[in-house]
Design a protein around this nucleic acid. Structure first.
Length: 721
DNA sequence: AGCCGAGCCTTTTTT
DNA sequence: AGGCTCGGCT
């Protein structure tokens, strides 16, 4: 390939970055400035101009999606496969190192990864076992504490607890870590910290990796936390070259440990030069001016001003809605106009600060028959039924896996009640044994009564049976066997309702996912099963299975980072919502909210609508909110206020019937989600929801009409239309 | 083991 | 308000 191809079509700054000499560098890349392109071309440049072997390149991202995109784009550019190159997420690459050196890391070969839900369950159990009041030390808060300490690179021994509260947290952290170690489990933060420690404590190992990877590239550098930074510094050593790409103005993850100051530290520690990418290829000049002016209110910036060769474009429209229903109606109305111009829904996004805001918007979309897709929520591999099935496989893979044991010991129910499980836990604690072996020992020592002993024995033989039967099968067959013979499938088949049906589909999809799975041959797994289990833990899958071809994209501002849309709506831009109430009195958090707003604005390519509601129902109460301060920070000449032309009708109070009906009763009626129906008294509506809430089988049916919502129980009053 | 009401909590999310 | 968990009851 002609080297000039790598520079053609790039602007001067991009070219400087791609063709920079071999030294440490910070690329301050503004929104929409083509940073992925620069990274990809830089990798190609290293290979083609600097004669770097693919084996010498190490590229780190935060998300699997970003890693995948980088991989494909590098392959497209160099027109060959990137074998030998390490491209992956912080967690993925750290995990890879841990697998290869599990004994140095003091981990069993069959170690597995637990997600935050598993972690929470483990902590809950621990609190109970240690007889700690979970009102005073809620599991959520404990897991947050442990995660935060690990992100800081701190082990219990490194922490000095100043008050009683922290002493307790520390005690739980210690116990939690012991439990994880005993079970051969690592949580997400542990992957990073443990990998750092292995390299830090093992000079020859570290040297091996330092020698292998002279070229290190890091994406979204502003999101790195303390351990990630230390890890990079370790790998870089004194001689390797690090190129970091990031944008301090888009740092929005401080609340989960990201250290924006790592950018400045990097400049100092690595004596790095800075290249600014400020030319924007995404948005109109108006949108960029609004974003620039807004973000200028933050202090301690690296400094950056986005510009474009493009047009001024339309002004940003600001709509002062009467309330959240009016806001939703306005947005849906504008989307309909867009659609009627023959444009695509997929090019539009509604962004909001918190997930709770999506419901009203969703109802309005459904009411008007506009297809939408909501991002966020449960991912495939996090679903209950999937985790149940995986837990059987995990237990087969590693008998020490207490988290998996707890999950399936009585799922489906097999007569092992809380009492027996309590005995097993107690024995495990006293003998410092994994639950599996504790159960064994209790039975051998005849410390369990007849029925319970039988039930536990048969559970033990079930797992052993599954293991022997699937030993020689391919992965998909293994999963299929476990799902069927554990009784999981039968359990969900016996359940009624829409939910159970989709669970069965998901279990089938899991088998399908197994057959699609390719074991990466360059990684060290003890078995394909072990590889698959790690894969699903590190990549939890897509949020929603059902994707419409053309649908409005709805998501939080956080999940919009990195994306772009011709038409963008930012909803709920009010004091108390955005910036959120919790950030009001803290200037650092306020600045992060402002960066979030900056991220939101810079998602828009052609047209941006911002709306705020004067009154909004929040936590069951009507709240009056002033327009967000961020609106005042956008220059007037970028804005057009949308005046209300017709009088807004106040929404009717919601009419509500209590009394729930069962799923079965609903299904007998033959009504379907989204169906239009007529109510004898209240008129036309749409069936929005008939799922029970939580584990309860109660059913809600909501109807929407002029913004009111009813819970209806009497189907006699309904008629399909 | 399943059903149901009381009570509690409520920003953002990836791995 | 709405979703979820817990504990008591059948």
């Amino acid at each position: 390939m002609d080297v000039s191809e790598l520079l053609d079509g790039l602007n001067d700054k991009q070219r400087d970055a791609v063709a920079a000499p071999l030294e440490n560098m910070l690329i301050l890349a503004g929104a929409g400035s083509g940073k992925t392109r620069v990274l990809v071309h830089r990798i190609a440049w290293l290979m083609q101009v600097e004669n770097a072997s693919p084996y010498s390149i190490f590229a780190v991202t935060f998300t699997n999606k970003a890693a995948k995109e980088m991989r494909t784009r590098v392959e497209e550019t160099i027109k060959s496969s990137v074998g030998g190159m390490w491209i992956g997420t912080f967690h993925g690459l750290s995990h890879r190192i841990l697998r290869a050196h599990h004994s140095e890391a003091k981990l069993p070969e069959s170690f597995q990864i637990i997600d935050s839900d598993d972690q929470l369950r483990m902590i809950r159990r621990l609190l109970k076992a240690l007889n700690i009041d979970d009102k005073k030390w809620p599991a959520k808060q404990v897991s947050w504490y442990i995660g935060a300490k690990k992100d800081e690179g701190l082990r219990p021994k490194d922490i000095k607890a100043y008050d009683q509260n922290e002493q307790m947290l520390l005690r739980i952290y210690t116990a939690y870590q012991e439990a994880c170690d005993r079970a051969g489990l690592v949580d997400f933060a542990e992957i990073l910290l443990r990998c750092f420690e292995v390299l830090n404590n093992n000079a020859s190992l570290l040297r091996h990796y330092q020698d292998r990877f002279p070229h290190i590239l890091v994406d979204e550098f502003q999101d790195t936390n303390t351990v990630q930074y230390a890890w990079l510094k370790l790998l870089a050593g004194k001689t390797n070259n690090v190129m970091t790409v990031g944008d301090d103005d888009q740092s929005i993850y401080g609340w989960r440990g990201a250290k924006i100051e790592n950018i400045r530290r990097f400049l100092e520690d690595f004596s790095a030069n800075t290249i600014r990418l400020e030319q924007n290829y995404r948005s109109t000049a108006t949108i960029l001016k609004a974003a620039n002016t807004l973000i200028a209110n933050n202090s301690e910036r690296m400094g950056k001003n986005l510009w474009t060769e493009g047009n001024k474009g339309d002004p940003i429209s600001i709509y002062a809605a009467f309330n959240e229903l009016d806001e939703a109606r306005f947005i849906v109305g504008k989307i309909k106009e867009w659609k009627n111009q023959g444009k695509n829904l997929i090019d539009t996004a509604i962004l909001y600060r918190s997930n709770a805001q999506s419901r009203i918007l969703e109802e309005a979309m459904l009411h008007e028959g506009i297809q939408y897709r909501i991002y966020g929520g449960m991912r495939f591999f996090e679903r209950q039924e999937i985790k149940d099935a995986l837990s059987y496989l995990r237990l087969v893979n590693n008998r020490q896996d207490d988290a998996a044991f707890e999950r399936v010991i009585n799922t489906p129910t097999r007569g092992i009640g809380n009492k027996s499980i309590g005995l097993i836990r107690e024995c495990a604690r006293n003998e410092s044994l994994p639950l599996w072996y504790a159960a064994h020992s209790l039975i051998e020592q005849k410390q369990l009564t007849g029925r319970a002993a039988n039930a536990i024995s048969s559970f033990i033989s079930l797992i052993t049976h599954i293991e022997t039967e699937i030993k020689d099968s391919v992965l998909a067959e293994q999963a299929k066997f476990a799902i069927n013979h554990s009784g999981l499938m039968a359990m969900y088949q016996a359940e009624k309702g829409e939910k159970a049906r989709s669970r069965i589909e998901n279990l089938e999809e899991l088998i399908n996912a197994c057959s699609q799975f390719e074991l990466p041959d360059e990684e060290d797994f003890s078995s394909p099963l072990s590889g698959f289990l790690s894969h699903v833990a590190l990549e939890s899958g897509e949020g929603q299975a059902d994707e419409h071809d053309d649908a409005v994209q709805m998501m939080t501002l956080h999940s919009a980072k990195g994306l772009e849309f011709p038409l963008v709506f930012m909803a709920g831009v009010e004091e108390g919502m955005f910036p959120s109430q919790q950030s009001h009195d803290d200037s650092e958090r306020l600045e992060e909210e402002r960066r979030l707003c900056y991220v939101g604005i810079t998602r828009a390519m052609e047209k941006l609508f911002i709306s705020h509601a004067e009154s909004r129902r929040l936590y069951g109460q009507e709240k009056q909110h002033a327009p967000s301060r961020f609106l005042r920070e956008i220059p007037d000449d970028c804005i057009e206020e949308v005046r209300i032309k017709t009088q807004v009708t106040r929404p009717q109070a919601s009419n509500r019937f209590s009394n729930a009906v069962s799923t079965a009763a609903f299904e007998e009626t033959g009504f379907k989600l989204g169906q239009r129906v007529m109510h004898k008294k209240f008129g036309e509506g749409i069936v929005l929801n008939y799922e029970g809430s939580g584990s309860q089988s109660r059913v809600q049916i909501n109807f929407l009409d002029v913004g009111s919502k009813w819970l209806v129980t009497s189907f006699a009053k309904l008629q399909a239309i």
